[in-house]
Amino acid sequence: MNKLFNKKKWQKHDLLFISVAILCLSPIISSPIALLLGFTLAMLGLVPKQINLNLLTKKLLAYSIIGLGFGINLDQAIAVSKDALGLVIVSLFSTLILGWLLTRRLGIDPKTGHLIASGTAICGGSAIAAVAPAINATEDQTSIALATIFILNSVALFLFPFIGHLLSMTEHAFGIWCAIAIHDTSSVVGAASAYGNEALLTATTLKLARALWIIPVAFISALLFKGDNKKITVPSFILFYCLSILIAYYLPQFSTLYDIIFSVSKRFLVLSLFLIGAAISFDKIRAAGASPMILGICLWIITASGSLTYILLLM
């Protein structure tokens, strides 16, 4: 707990932040609105200094995703993963190759460009956090990549549901698109949950299956950049997420409890997005700079439009 909260005195205006955070646990606040509320309070300087937002968000998000696993049907999860396997592989490696080409074209630092491409190709911040130590990236290189992906994630949370409804996409199709084209798991789940339960289950399942590609990509990255492949790690929440799916599958007699855990996890996910919004600052936006942001936008548009075209025409 000491790592989550420091010993600074609480101020009266901190009560507003806490009240809004509690409000995000209610059904009246959607994922995009929660992110916007957090960002607004951050811009007004109303985020308590006593809270370690990064650590709290990381833990809360991990627990939320693990809880969502109890609402996943194993047979459906396998079917979704098999149906979209080709799309996942093609989009992943084409994004990495395109990222390498554009990085050279734009004159961006190779490691920064590779981190942005890895975050776009797999699962945003988690992929960047896993690949960075494997290629011995500096703190500045990692921060710029994270800031770029972070900003685009925030945009995706609002933009994707709008496009999905505009094109009258089914929840299943929208869930697949989210898992392929949105970077971070948090934004994937947030956008999908705003679209519907089937979209949420499809997107969460496919995104976390996609996240397992962190291991081979980090290993290949270490070889390319002559880094340290001993530093490659896989986020533990992915393993616990898989475990929660197996528990729900092999112990179906507790389905009522699983439904409660799933519902509570969805609300804590909204709270996580509120905390993510509260961590956004103009310093992070400024740190991204023009060239890395151009790279991130180009990769994102190509990945999103290419996967959308495939889903609408061929799936």
Rank of each mutant, 00 (worst) to 15 (best):
Leu312His: 10
Leu35Val: 13
Gln50Tyr: 07
Ser94Val: 14
Ala79His: 09
Ala117Gly: 09
Ser265Pro: 04
Trp100Arg: 15
Lys49Ser: 13
Ile144Asp: 07
Asp259Trp: 01
Pro32Thr: 07
Gly296Phe: 08
Thr170Val: 01
Ser94Cys: 13
Ile65Asp: 03
Phe274Gln: 11
Gly164Phe: 01
Lys59Leu: 14
Phe160Arg: 01
His183Cys: 12
Pro292Lys: 02
Ile247Lys: 11
Ala34Trp: 01
Ser118Thr: 15
Ile122Asp: 05
Leu167Pro: 06
Thr309Ile: 13
Leu201Met: 11
Lys207Asn: 10
Pro161Cys: 10
Ala179Lys: 02
Ala21Asn: 04
Ile135Trp: 04
Phe174Ile: 08
Val188Arg: 11
Phe174Leu: 12
Ile33Phe: 01
Lys12Gly: 01
Gly71Asp: 09
Ile182Tyr: 03
Pro32Ile: 11
Leu201Asn: 11
Ser307Lys: 02
Trp10Asp: 13
Leu224Ser: 11
Ser263Pro: 00
Thr95Ser: 15
Val90Pro: 03
Ala279Cys: 00
Leu87Glu: 04
Ser244Gly: 05
Leu212Glu: 10
Leu74His: 02
Ser19Phe: 15
Asp184Gln: 07
Ser255Cys: 02
Lys82Phe: 08
Gly67Cys: 10
Pro133Thr: 08
Ala191Leu: 04
Tyr195Phe: 15
Gly124Tyr: 06
Gly289Arg: 09
Phe262Glu: 12
Leu106His: 01
Leu312Gln: 15
Leu60Ile: 14
Pro216Ile: 08
Ser64Phe: 04
Leu98Ser: 05
Ala117Asn: 09
